[in-house]
Nucleic acid binder design. Structure first.
Lengths: 162, 162
DNA sequence: TATTGTTATACTCTATAACTATA
DNA sequence: TATAGTTATAGAGTATAACAATA
């Protein structure tokens, strides 16, 4: 139980949690849930995406995606557009209203984010990026996906390590 | 839109997302949802906690907590124990079964986590912790909670920055 | 046969607010 | 009056699997 890395995992979880809280309120303020915002943010400044692409970027499975897109379509924020080359699929893209919302939300997000990093210099960013990049690379490593027979996976810190 | 910090936020989100995926499968494997696991993990190696404490540690609001605890109680993993000093509240604590589950899940989690950090030395941990700790401290800063009049909050990266 | 997206089930979480019983 | 926890309401997300249309 005394593994060195637990402290780091705990810190990551706290940063994670902090961001989630940081995000949750303004997203709701715009009448969106987090997955809905995720879709709007992913579609912004693109010509549209298929379900497959959206699923890969947001990690929402196709069955769930149907419901999320449905609600966004009801709100008039996205639309489904037929592709000619493969009639099974189509593009989901922002409507004019959705595009307006995207361009309203994003500058606000960027401006507020600046507060969080107001005192960061180039070196600070490099340190943070370097540490995170290393971890992300490790998370993507193919050997991790297969190294585990069944039970063993990670992600939480016991109370007595905190 | 070209803010330097967006890259870091993106990386953090990817690490976050990676961990969530890393966690999701084994938790389900033990028949728990993420919030349920969060409760089990939080209660492990403690004499029990009140709703208030649990809510603070897990960020689950009291109304939701009732449902989560109900389901864990139905599974025989936790129990509600009356406190004598204040009859309004009680302790939630792991049952013997819950404690066994905790002690089954956690060693597995710890062992698997080791794979992720197999090549980390002391210096590597220090770099990661330092960068994350700084960010967490910033997230906790009181001026952030009040600096924002209404609309501006952070957390996502536009598609064209990726 | 494989893939894209839909539908159907069934559950879980969430926010919010009104409610109770204690304090 | 304030606090701890419950209940009620109304969404919304999730996994899973079976399904239709198309490739």
């Amino acid at each position: 139980m005394g593994e060195r890395y637990l402290k780091s995992v705990r810190l990551l979880a706290e940063c994670l949690q902090g961001f989630e809280r940081f995000v949750a309120e303004p997203v709701r303020r715009h009448g969106l849930t987090h997955p809905q915002f995720d879709i709007i943010a992913t579609l912004g400044n693109t010509p549209g995406m298929t379900y497959k692409e959206l699923g890969e970027r947001t990690l929402i499975t196709k069955g769930t995606l149907t419901g999320v897109i449905d609600r966004l379509e009801q709100k008039g924020l996205v639309e489904r557009v037929r592709k000619c080359d493969d009639k099974r699929s189509f593009l989901v893209r922002l409507t004019a209203t959705g595009d307006t919302l995207f361009h309203t939300v994003f500058p606000a997000v960027v401006a507020h984010g600046k507060l969080l990093f107001a005192d960061y210099g180039d070196g600070d960013f490099e340190q943070l990026d370097h540490a995170l990049h290393r971890l992300r690379t490790r998370l993507d490593a193919p050997d991790l996906a297969t190294a585990v027979p069944g039970e063993l996976r990670a992600g939480h810190v016991p109370a007595d390590e905190r």
